[in-house]
């Protein structure tokens, strides 16, 4: 159940209905929908919204369009047969035969051309799908690369933050680049914050204890890597993370101190 809820909240189903996912992602969503009825229901609701939206965007469409299209489709599926009058003249037979051959030839070429055009259109669609696939892979690669670059930097001081009384199983890591003073927080070891709350990161001086807010872990659910950039800091002696009401607080609520670690 939790898995289905998180999957729905990730926003992937909307893109599934829009048709902008790669082929493999589309298949994954289809499988999830088969497994969880609530995912299937959600897809149908999203689709209803999108159907209403696109419907309301159309200008007036005259009934003549319907006739034109129907005519075209029917034309392509039936051929009219014309009865031939018997003729005694041999030349006229040859003439008719030649005409029939010519017509048949043109007709055949037309179907060939039509088939080829159709094929081109579908190869394009396929190409498009493959491109999307490639983009999705590239995207993951870029994300992974930039994450690795952050984590691997030689100038980093890595501070492990351990779980505190309110949540002993929590953990986090701070990557503090001494050169640039930038700070990244790896929050993969923190539970999802409850609705209406947000994690706030503090850089601390210990004697006397002086906390300075260096940022919020905003959009926690949407950040798949759980790696967050927060504000620069200098001279920190420890880092702590507390749970605060949405928007953050001026000073930390120490009863909701999730993790803490000394530099």
């Amino acid at each position: 159940m939790m898995e289905a809820r998180a999957y729905i909240e990730s926003g992937i189903l909307e893109l599934y209905v829009f048709g902008t996912l790669s082929e493999s992602e589309t298949q994954e969503v289809a499988q999830m929908a088969e497994k969880y009825p609530e995912i299937q229901d959600e897809i149908i609701s999203i689709e209803k919204a999108v159907i209403s939206l696109s419907y309301s965007m159309a200008p007036y469409l005259s009934a003549a369009n319907y006739d034109r299209i129907k005519e075209q489709l029917i034309e392509k599926h039936t051929t009219k047969v014309v009865a031939m009058q018997p003729k005694s003249n041999a030349f006229s037979y040859i003439g008719w035969a030649a005409a029939v051959l010519l017509m048949a030839g043109i007709g055949w070429q037309y179907t060939q051309l039509d088939a080829a055009q159709n094929q081109v259109a579908f190869v394009r669609t396929e190409n498009d799908t493959l491109n999307k696939e490639l983009n999705a892979v590239k995207l993951t690669e870029t994300q992974t690369k930039s994450l690795l670059a952050v984590v691997r930097d030689q100038d980093n001081t890595v501070v492990a933050l351990g779980g505190q009384a309110v949540s002993p199983e929590s953990a986090a890591k701070v990557y503090w680049n001494q050169n640039t003073q930038t700070v990244y927080v790896d929050a993969a070891g923190l539970p999802e914050p409850p609705e209406g709350f947000v994690y706030q990161v503090w850089s601390l001086k210990l004697d006397p204890l002086t906390p300075t807010s260096i940022g919020l872990l905003d959009d926690f659910k949407g950040n798949d890597s759980r790696l967050f950039a927060v504000s620069n800091t200098s001279g920190a002696e420890a880092f702590g993370i507390t749970l605060e009401p949405a928007g953050g607080s001026v000073s930390p609520n120490l009863e909701q101190l999730y993790t803490l670690g000394k530099v």
């Binding site: 909240e9 990730s10 926003g11 992937i12 909307e14 893109l15 829009f18 048709g19 902008t20 999203i46 919204a49 999108v50 939206l53 696109s54 965007m57 999307k132 983009n135 999705a136 590239k138 995207l139 994300q143 959009d219 659910k221 949407g222 950040n223 798949d224 890597s225």
Partner: peptide, 30 residues
């Protein structure tokens, strides 16, 4: 995303918003 069929990456570039938030922002709007 819907009318023009952009990928997440293309939408993130165009709107200059973080890639990781494209999906969730779009969901909030829908």
């Amino acid at each position: 995303l819907f009318f023009k069929g952009y990928t997440q990456q293309e939408a993130s570039d165009e709107l200059e918003i973080p890639l990781g938030t494209v999906k969730t922002q779009n969901r909030n709007c829908i």
